[in-house]
């Protein structure tokens, strides 16, 4: 059975890139373009892992991470932050908010899928 991954990402191109690479590697990818939707999908589909881009609008990215971690049924679901390291302390903050790890942008097609697999 294919493993389902949830990507929460507001940037269409990034989403497309990640989906392309992950689907190529045999994952089933579901996606949301905002935090609220992402949390609902996570609760509904219970994905193998969640890829969270931290430049989400509306709901604060850290808030999304904290919210996801609150739910008992998502306890075993790793959250992988995708970060461009734009602001100082971002990485530490997202880890503190509950993310299990991060993948740095720009996404390297050679290594991206392997990095995701590390958390699964």
């Amino acid at each position: 059975m294919k493993e389902t991954l949830l990507i929460i990402e507001d940037n269409e191109q990034n989403l497309y890139m990640m989906r392309f690479l992950l689907e190529k590697s045999g994952f089933t990818v579901i996606s949301a373009t905002n935090g609220r939707e992402g949390i609902q999908m996570a609760l509904h589909h219970k994905p193998r892992a969640i890829l969270l881009d931290i430049q989400l609008p509306e709901m604060d990215r850290y808030e999304v991470a904290r919210e996801l971690k609150k739910h008992e049924e998502l306890k075993g679901v790793p959250i992988i932050a995708v970060t461009s390291y734009a602001m100082p302390g971002d990485r530490e903050k997202i880890l503190a908010a509950g993310a299990n790890g991060y993948i740095e942008k720009p996404i390297d097609p050679d290594t991206f899928v392997d990095e995701v697999r590390k958390y699964i």
């Binding site: 940037n11 191109q13 990034n14 890139m17 392309f20 690479l21 190529k24 430049q55 461009s84 734009a86 602001m87 942008k105 720009p106 996404i107 390297d108 097609p109 050679d110």
Partner: peptide, 21 residues
């Protein structure tokens, strides 16, 4: 951030293409 987002996109897709994926 604004510069890097499109740039990341360019770099990423270029990589994908170069890999023959």
């Amino acid at each position: 951030h604004e510069l890097r987002t499109p740039l990341n996109s360019i770099i990423g897709f270029t990589g994908i293409l170069l890999q023959g994926l």
